[in-house]
Write a protein that binds this DNA or RNA. Structure first.
Lengths: 219, 219
DNA sequence: TTAAATTTTTAGGGTAATCTAAAAATATTT
DNA sequence: AAATATTTTTAGATTACCCTAAAAATTTAA
């Protein structure tokens, strides 16, 4: 059984390792969790003893299969709660993250089983990210980031690489949401900023930086 | 802002003081929370500094108005979640307590506002206990415990004084639930055990001990 | 009303998670 | 490949919560 804090470390490591494949550095973890590298070193020893990561001093961290599964269970809970908050409690997609961050640590397998059922076994959360099954399986997303597409291509926004409130509000202002269909009108040769035509019939300009953080499935 | 643990102490004190009216002893708190009296003494100092209780050494604890309100907010969350678990996730009334005990500490006023709305502003939880409003108001329950009634009286089960799984399962076996109408058939002069006639047309015997823990509203 | 029993508090420690400062290992640059 | 810079770890403290053992206050009983 992992503590609240241990669960947060494990989740951070999972995200940084992209799905458990890469090794993760101490500093990267301390950055994400806003703790000091020294604290991370301490925690890595503990998680290593609990066999959820494999850890060689100075060599970074890898997840064990057990750790990967535990992380996916937490992510499953997080994303199911997000669906509940948006679909049933009328939350906005940029309001759910912090609350889901708390709810994901509630421990009750019955609760999650029933919540999943209640929600109709959703496969994706409100940001378009896939919800892992109880044994860690996920529907893959075949997506690319907006900055890789050429003029003329039509695509649908499916997920984001940035979840800060600032970024989400910026997108809201532009009228860009999950599920919005966009057409690439022009890619500037000057700074690679992109002109988009939205399904709302509006044209907007986004910087290359913004485009990098928007994932779409091309049609 | 109170910690998870501080919230649990405050809630325990609230319950023991019946709604903030009586003084509460250190031992009573340590019993309920399964900690040692020494730990309680430590915590009382902290809660006193935070002005949620008033505390004079060796004299027991009283809640401040601020503390009473905070306790009621936690109880409000607990009971709203219980309604959600039973009404929407199909939990049994004897399965909700532990999960609600975790959910009650999630901090988001928007979440609770929306949950209340989603549930249709319920006034009572699945055990028949009243749900406090945001500013601590509750619908009063005019109830008596079953052991105070005489033969011939008809009443409806509205709440319980015991919430242990054992007790709840015992009642389930007997066919006694919230909302069940009971008629007192006989009160034994030997051990004060009571024969009940249930709305299901069954007759059952309950001990005086059990009767003491069942509250009813007499008709 | 004094002695005994009980309750409550203090003193001193332990563990989990955090920190700062300094040391050790690794990586980069010249 | 030696010097420098960066990353990571260790050492030593701090805070929150909990413990045991002993002391102090209060309550009960003889």
């Amino acid at each position: 059984m992992l503590s609240f804090t241990e669960e947060n470390y494990l989740k951070a490591i999972y995200h940084l390792s992209n799905n458990g494949s890469n090794a993760v550095s101490t500093n990267a973890i301390s950055d994400i969790l806003s703790t000091k590298p020294a604290s991370v070193s301490d925690m890595l020893k503990k998680l290593s003893q609990k066999k959820v990561i494999s850890y060689i001093k100075y060599q970074g961290v890898n997840m064990t299969e057990e750790g990967r599964l535990l992380a996916l269970r937490i992510i499953r809970k997080h994303r199911l709660w997000e669906v509940f908050l948006v679909k049933h409690l009328g939350f906005n997609w940029d309001q759910v993250h912090d609350v889901a961050e708390e709810l994901e640590h509630i421990n009750s397998s019955l609760l999650i089983k029933r919540l999943d059922e209640f929600l109709g076994f959703p496969k994706f959360d409100p940001h378009g990210d896939p919800i892992p099954s109880e044994d860690g399986e996920m529907s893959p997303l075949f997506t690319v980031s907006l900055d890789t597409l050429d003029a003329g291509v039509v695509a649908v926004v499916t997920s984001l690489n940035e979840t800060s409130g600032e970024f989400l509000r910026h997108l809201d202002k532009l009228g860009i949401n999950l599920g919005v269909k966009v057409k690439i009108m022009d890619v500037s040769t000057f700074d690679k900023s992109i002109e988009l035509h939205l399904s709302s019939d509006k044209n907007v300009m986004i910087s290359n930086e913004v485009a990098k953080n928007i994932n779409v499935s091309a049609e």
